[in-house]
Each structure stands twice: as structure tokens, then as C-alpha cells.
Amino acid sequence: MKIDVQHLAKLSRLHISEEQVAKFEMQMQEILGMVDNLPELSSEDCLIDPQNPMTCRPDIPQNNYKRDDILKNAPQVQAGCVVVPKVIE
């Protein structure tokens, strides 16, 4: 199996240098190789667990945060908003 490290890097918004690509690919291959060697598993549904159902939150509004609390860690703020490079879509 081929792992396209550069494609994954693009998907995860990372730069990976060419020398790292080979290293990362090899390391990932080893880990994934272990999965490839797994024995056959029953195909029952493993993604939901109805035995452990969720309790939901009542629809009651409350908020104790001011705008400054929310924005104080932002690298760039203007007019009460977080600033990002111009987005065109």
C-alpha cells in the first residue's frame, strides 16, 4: 500500500519536508502493517453502543462569558472580531 504523505499533509494543513516524507511514510507503514495483519473480525456494528445511551441537556440558555473572555487569546482582533487573511469565496 502506498501512503501519499504529501496529500495527507495537505489535508491536515501541514508542511512536511521531502526528507521527512520518507521517514514518516516508513513509520506509518509499520504501524498500519500491524492492522493489515489483524485476524478476521466479526462485522457487527462497532460504531454505536445503544447499551450506553446519551442523556441530553435541557434547552435552557445561560452564558457567563463576555466577548473579551472569548477574544483575549486571539492573535489578531478588530471591531470585536477575530481577524484572518481575506477569504474569497
Binding site: 445561560q62 457567563n64 462569558y65 472569548i70 471591531a79 470585536g80
Partner: peptide, 30 residues
């Protein structure tokens, strides 16, 4: 639990959870 209201001053209807602060978790409104 932030108020679901339209038309308020920017960034005044939000909290650490809906702004995705590290460590926060969602809880579903019934």
C-alpha cells in the same frame, strides 16, 4: 447553553464551547 438569537452584536452570543476552545466538550440539546 448560549442563547440562540439572531442579530446581536458580534461575538456576544458565544462561549468557550461554541468557539472551540481547547478542552471544551459538546452536550446535545434535547
Amino acid at each position: 447553553s448560549c442563547k440562540n438569537e439572531f442579530g446581536f452584536e458580534v461575538n456576544t452570543r458565544c462561549c468557550p464551547i461554541c468557539t472551540g476552545m481547547p478542552g471544551t466538550l459538546p452536550t446535545l440539546n434535547e
